[in-house]
Nucleic acid binder design. Structure first.
Length: 816
RNA sequence: GCGGAUGUGGUGAAAUUGGUAUACACGCCAGACUUAGGAUCUGGUGCCGCAAGGUGUGGAGGUUCAAGUCCUCUCAUCCGCACCA
């Protein structure tokens, strides 16, 4: 009866593989559950974060299978991306070979962990069959006007030699290699995600309850909606002349129209087109021009250190007071928000104040607090009462905002406007290992979409990857093609797509059964049945990027008519990180624990049990070697004590009333564990408490030796623990129960019925003693028992009140 | 600065949602079995105290018969965003 995990785990892994145990049914009348873990990048080996991620989803998938749901629990590989190319540069490897070798190895790891993934729906996003449909979608999006190309200032990573999306720039550095990014003027393709900004924001409401609050807030902040007033500031005639009449105005946006009368200067971003024009046409002194150039060259982090600016020597007219206002260039004005220009109200905005103090600009107060004096030493940024504001004097900030906007609109000099921080998603990358953008450049037809029947446009196998430039661009033949429209000589687009495009629809592809893979990306019917994902599980690091893009794609696909819902993921669980020695496991810190080594030493069940027992899934998990041993010991005991079980094809019938106290107690604990298990799998996901409940019940079982009680307990345990430690549970279940117990378990009430129960007795809320009372004892009876037991504490005091909380306690309130 | 969380034994963590604080596990201590134990089993283990008892969920107040849980203030830590006009 030795616990030989190696034999047991191998045996059941082979059994599951041979029986296709985890394939979803095509019967769409069954109730479904779609359980999805974020798919991995095939970096080579699984790490503990993966093991945690898939242990959680596997537990849910296996539970729902037992409950007779049709369960889709797929896995795939997010296999395009730069590490493959970097390996190619470093080791002269073929990115494709490198990727698919890694995938093979990781599939072996999945198997050795006993994860119940559907095998038949596995794919890698670098599969040409996946690229084929993705390219089709891109063409659709372009034709629908949801994708466009534009020259613009882009985030360029000099190390990775590619453009990055705004979302991929962290603190001014590349999200992947931490190299400071530089701005580069390039042509780039964009998805119009900003067009969906409002819906992406408003439908976050529908995710409340299902998604962690933190993620909702992060997305809300990222979208960054703000309402305000936009208007033109017109140059005075002298300034217009200086600008050769090329410009007569520029736009500004404010969320504080109530401060409009306090505008004393305005500021443009260093990259603003008027500034560029003035520099190019030598309208500024060399000194001023070089100062502006320096601002442009300064990274966004350094720009935050100190405000600086220069006057441009031109002025605009205040739209209401008609006064002249100087125009400055200021380093704190961002080109990519609003119009790249601001009206400055130093009296009521901290930045404007700081800038005005530094350059000795006018400060004009127009709002005062209701309850105190206006300070001259700082900006008053709160709401208050307007003054110095002509017809709006005396109004409060809030009402005046609406009134001032209306005034601008009535006079047709401005309008109510909504601004978003969310920018369009730049998706082209100058890299090899990605899905080619299926467009063709033709001298006579311009930009032409590839014909869908020619898809996929696959990568050439013989590209030279050196880390410099774009391998597709440099390939001797790949880019030369015929124009799909006129048939003339043309060239292919050599940019590839951001890998986040692949992960934005992979969950839809999983809904397609293998039989249809060649013909369609997915069918509407299959999608309608399987979507939305009932439970999505992954790391918080995807809170913005992936999860926002996937939501965007879902809405786009809806508008393209591919599907009929608005949000892809009904419930989201963001798992905590796996730590060792208080820090995130990482190769550079040398504090990693290799899953393969743990499996070799203790087996997959131990790894899974430890990971789910050590902390609730949403919390950080500290790796602890001796606690792993503890998990192993529990499984070993669990297995060895199954020797007490009698073989049976049904759950044993037990006459509860004939049992001893210990036997009754053991049954109580067993059924308490079952109740908790249902609660955990359906609602709470706190697997640690479920496991604790089973351990408690095991401890209680050990105090008695009734083999019927043991058998009933194991019938239930090997069912409710199977989602967590499947191999050993299958072993026990097949040995004693013919695998017939791996299904929904019925809670019986009689075990919870006790003859007597213990009530705590407290005096003034302080626990003093306890009493045993029969379950049908009357309240007076209980009180008198309690008084008797607590007599010691009742001498010389007056009883004010007696409170009986049924099945819990008696509280006696005393005075004196 | 704005936003989101989290603070409970030596450690990871429980607490049926206002009702016996510390379940379960790790660690530690003791005992048993052993030639031996880093195996296994049994028992103990919040803190102070010989005990009676006192005290205890970051801190200070409050509501309540009763607060880890609700309210007010406050401190600390972590995370995200950040010159967004």
């Amino acid at each position: 009866m030795d616990y030989n995990f190696k034999n047991i785990e191998k045996k059941w892994q082979e059994f599951w593989a041979k029986n296709d145990s985890f394939e979803p049914s095509e019967d769409f009348n069954k109730e479904k559950k779609y359980i999805l873990s974020m798919f991995p990048f095939p970096s080579g080996r699984l790490h503990m974060g993966h093991v945690r991620n898939y242990s959680i989803s596997d537990a849910l998938a296996r539970y729902y299978r037992q409950q007779n749901f049709n369960v889709l629990h797929p896995i795939g590989f997010d296999s395009f991306g730069m590490p493959a190319e970097n390996a190619a540069i470093k080791n002269n490897a073929d990115p494709k070979e490198w990727t698919y070798d890694n995938i093979d190895y990781m599939k072996g790891e999945f198997k050795s962990l006993g994860f119940s993934f559907s095998k038949k729906r596995e794919f890698a996003t670098s599969d040409e069959l996946y690229t084929k449909f993705e390219q089709g979608f891109i063409i659709d999006m372009y034709e629908k006007g949801l994708m466009y190309s534009q020259k613009g200032l882009l985030n360029w990573c000099p190390n990775d030699q590619t453009v990055l999306a705004n979302e991929q720039v962290i603190d001014g550095c590349c999200w992947r290699c931490d190299t400071p990014i530089v701005k580069k003027d390039m042509n780039q393709y964009y998805f119009k995600i900003s067009e969906y900004g409002d819906e992406l924001l408003s439908s976050l409401k529908n995710l409340e309850g299902g998604w962690p609050k933190q993620v909702l807030t992060m997305q809300e902040n990222w979208i960054g909606k703000s309402n305000g007033l936009a208007f033109h500031l017109f140059f005075d005639s002298a300034s217009k002349g200086r600008l050769n009449n090329t410009f007569d105005s520029f736009d500004v946006f404010t969320t504080r129209p109530d401060t409009i009368y306090g505008v004393t200067y305005t500021a443009l971003a260093p990259e603003h087109k008027i500034v560029t024009y003035m520099i190019e046409n030598k309208m500024l002194s060399d000194e001023v021009a070089s100062k502006i150039q320096m601002m442009k060259n300064t990274s966004s982090i350094d720009r935050q250190k100190e405000k600086s600016g220069v006057p441009l020597g031109i002025s605009v007219i205040h739209p209401l007071t008609k006064k002249e206002i100087p125009v400055w260039v200021a380093n704190f004005v961002l080109m990519d928000y609003g119009s790249g220009a601001v009206m400055a109200v130093p009296a009521h905005d901290e930045r404007d104040f700081e800038f005005a103090k530094k350059y000795d600009l006018d400060i004009k107060s127009v709002i005062k607090p209701y309850d105190k004096e206006l300070s001259k030493d700082s900006a008053f940024t709160e709401a208050g009462e307007l003054f110095n504001s002509e017809g709006f004097d005396g109004q409060n900030s809030q009402e005046s905002q609406a009134n001032i906007i209306k005034y601008f609109e009535d006079k047709k000099i401005g309008q109510k406007t909504t601004n978003y921080k969310l920018k369009d998603w730049g998706v082209s990358r100058q890299r090899y290992w990605g899905a080619p953008i299926p467009f063709v450049h033709c001298d006579s037809c311009g930009l032409v979409m590839e014909k869908k029947e020619n898809l996929p446009i696959a990568l050439p196998a013989d590209a030279e990857i050196t880390g410099e430039g774009n391998p597709l661009e440099r390939h001797p033949t790949w880019k030369y093609c015929k124009c799909p429209k006129c048939g003339g000589d043309a060239t292919r687009e050599t940019d590839t797509m951001d890998t986040f495009v692949e992960s934005s629809w992979y969950f839809l592809r999983f809904c397609a059964s293998e039989a249809n893979w060649e013909d369609e990306a997915f069918s509407k019917e299959q999608i309608a049945y399987w979507m939305g994902v009932d439970q999505y599980i992954g790391g918080i690091e995807h809170a913005i990027l992936h999860l926002l893009y996937a939501r965007f794609f879902t809405k786009v696909f809806r508008d393209l008519g591919y599907l009929d819902f608005d949000e892809p993921f009904d419930r989201l669980l963001t798992q905590g990180m796996v730590l060792k020695d208080g820090a995130k496991m990482s190769k550079s810190k040398g504090n990693t624990v290799d899953p393969d080594a743990i499996i070799e030493k203790y087996g997959a069940d131990t790894a899974r049990l430890f990971i789910l027992f050590a902390a609730p899934p949403t919390q950080e998990l500290e790796w602890n070697d001796s606690a792993v041993e503890g998990a192993y010991r529990f499984i070993k005991r669990f297995y060895e004590r199954s020797a007490n079980v009698i073989k049976t094809k049904t759950i044993p019938k037990i006459e509860h009333s004939t049992l001893s106290k210990e036997e009754k107690f053991a049954r109580l604990k067993v059924y308490e564990a079952l109740v908790r298990a249902n609660d955990v799998y359906n609602e709470k996901y706190t697997f640690n408490t479920l496991i604790a409940g089973v351990m408690e019940a095991m401890n209680a079982l050990n105090l008695q030796s009734n083999r019927a009680v043991w058998s009933e307990a194991y019938w239930i345990f090997s069912s409710i623990m199977e989602p967590i430690i499947p191999h050993v549970c299958y072993e026990i279940s097949s040995e004693y129960f013919g695998l017939l117990n791996l299904s929904a378990q019925v809670v019986i009430d009689e075990v919870f019925e006790q003859d007597t129960l213990m009530l705590a007795v407290s005096i003034n809320g302080k626990r003093r003693t306890e009493i045993e009372v029969s379950t049908d004892a009357k309240e007076e009876e209980i009180i008198s028992l309690a008084k008797e037991a607590a007599s010691k504490w009742l001498e010389g005091v007056v009883i004010v009140k007696e409170i009986v909380v049924p099945k819990k306690l008696v509280n006696i309130v005393v005075k004196g």
